[in-house]
Design a binder for these strands. Structure first.
Length: 476
RNA sequence: UCCUCGGUAGCUCAAUGGUAGAGCAAUCGGCUGUUAACCGAUGGGUUGGGGGUUCAAGUCCCUCCCGAGGAGCCA
């Protein structure tokens, strides 16, 4: 980036200035937003300024001799944008090693009506921040989440690239009738007030933009399998959409998902991949964002750093669904489950929590679920009773990963479609993958925002994405 | 969709059916380097909307809206 031509001071980010990348005595220019102004008894002011380049703000000391001190500096409030030029100095005060001795303070943008500025320099409730989603990135916590999210995303791509995976951009608009993962949002250009009808009165989607019904994708998996059976190791990383009326701290209507898919691989291989992958991206957060993680450990979740360090060092607990049921049956009296446990039942939140929080105390990989509670594409095991599915359960969150080995045998896939009452003709191209050079393959889906929750300890998924979409709310 | 809790000053919260308050923020003033600075003063309200009970409603009842937590669904 080019320095400002208007000044002899070198433009620097606050991260660079605080990291000692400039010498004491250098004349620097910093650009950012004011978090607080404190006036000294001696007739000068301290400005705490952040620019997002790191967690910490830098302190600028504005002397009373500045020509605009009375008219401008003393009128600065939280949220004003400023350009400060001055000399980098060692700070005599506590809380920072360096500060800027300002010789110029330029207010670029004032705060209109400071009393009602929603992001005052104080603790706010998360509900309040959500109602001002356009301003909340100015807070410490959302700034920190944003940097961690970026670091995780970069680490995702780096991990897969370094391991020979190709990033496949699967479509966001899908014409698949059944991706098999929940309610879908309709995509249409038809005039809702004047819908075209067929002879029998149904909506005539042949007149719609794509000439058929289309929706927003709920998963890139079926599409990415096509590329897996040609490029061997692939992944998707992009937005997905669920029109479920879910009102919880773990669900979004629009969220990002990472879905790797590997050829010539079985369930164990995908569980191994999930473990290596999660360890890699969490280690990246520990290595690259210690400042933000220290903030989360201090104000949000005391154990979050410790938890990630243990996660990176220890191995996942692997457990058969069958064995999990036995453990839960044995614990059901003491744990007082609301819902009964038996083979064939899907596990409730309380059961998943017991397994990973009480019984094991760290993430658990559950494998080989009963076929009746899992999707059609999961590979039937030899016992004819279970499928090669796995879930990774994380303490405090529940299911963070869902994956499986895919059914690669056409006749078994067709049987599964038939038993589940799914019309084979809707899966033409998906069945073709089994007709032309099929191979065993497997993959999983990781909810990106749930990963962010786990890393930071924030307790609501609506803080893990810049502009959360949930039922009845698509503001901003 | 279901269950529970909530909506009072810009923010966070008080207020037995009986005169709507505090802290922070803001504004003004004071104070010899402050760290969410400190001290003093000032301004700030259709108590989410509508209806009802009552001499009297922030408070009780009905209804709608909005928010949070949990469940289900899942990532």
């Amino acid at each position: 980036m080019h320095d400002s031509p208007s000044s002899d001071a070198a433009f620097t980010t606050i991260r660079q200035a605080l990291a000692g990348e400039h010498a004491v005595g250098d004349r620097l220019e910093i650009r950012g937003w004011v978090r607080t102004r404190r006036d000294s008894k001696a007739g000068f002011s301290f400005l705490s300024i952040y620019d997002g380049s790191c967690f910490d703000a830098i302190q600028a000391v504005a002397p009373g001799e500045l020509p605009n001190y009375q008219d401008a500096v003393l009128k600065i409030t939280t949220g004003c944008s400023v350009i400060v030029r001055g000399t980098l100095a060692e700070s005599p005060g506590k809380g920072q090693s360096f500060e800027i001795q300002a010789d110029e303070v330029e207010v670029v943008g004032w705060v209109d009506d400071p009393e009602t500025y929603p992001m005052a320099a104080k603790r706010h409730t998360m509900e309040h921040l959500r109602q001002h989603a356009h301003l909340r990135p100015r807070t410490n916590i959302i700034g920190a989440v944003t940097r961690v999210r970026h670091t995780l995303a970069q680490a995702v791509h780096r991990f897969y690239h370094q391991n020979g995976f190709y990033w496949i951009n699967t479509p966001i608009i899908t014409g698949n009738d059944a991706e098999g993962a929940g309610e879908m949002f309709r995509v249409s250009t038809l005039d809702l007030a004047n819908l075209p009808r067929t002879a029998d009165g149904a909506v005539d989607f042949e007149q719609d933009f794509f000439g058929k019904e289309t929706h927003l994708t709920v998963s890139g998996q079926l599409n990415v399998e096509c590329y897996c059976l040609a490029l061997s190791k692939v992944y998707t990383f992009g937005p997905t959409f669920r029109a479920e009326n879910s009102n919880t701290s773990r669900h979004l209507a629009e969220f990002w998902m990472i879905e790797p898919e590997i050829a010539f691989a079985d369930l164990v291989a995908t569980a191994d991949l999930a473990e290596d992958f999660l360890k890699y991206i969490f280690k990246a957060v520990l290595d690259e964002r210690p400042d933000d993680m220290a903030f989360f450990a201090k104000w949000v979740d005391k154990g979050c750093i410790d938890r990630l360090e243990k996660f990176v060092e220890s191995s996942f607990e692997r457990m058969e669904y069958r064995d999990a049921i036995k453990i839960l049956e044995g614990a059901s009296k003491k744990a007082k489950f609301e819902f009964p446990v038996h083979f064939g039942a899907d596990l409730q939140s309380e059961h998943e929590r017991y397994l990973c929080e009480q019984h094991v105390g760290r993430p658990v990989v559950l494998m080989n679920y009963p076929k009746d509670i899992k999707a059609f594409y999961m590979r039937l095991n030899d016992d004819d009773e279970t499928v090669a599915a796995m879930d990774v359960l994380a303490p405090g969150i529940g299911e963070i990963i869902g994956g499986s080995q895919r059914e690669e045998r056409l006749e078994v896939l067709d049987q599964r479609l038939a038993t589940m009452d799914l019309p084979a003709e809707d899966y033409g191209w998906y069945r073709d993958l089994r007709r032309y050079g099929t191979v065993p393959h497997a993959g999983f889906g990781l909810g990106f925002e749930r990963t962010i929750i786990y890393a930071t300890g924030i307790d609501n998924i609506r803080e893990a994405i810049p502009f959360p979409r949930v039922p009845r709310n698509a503001d901003f």
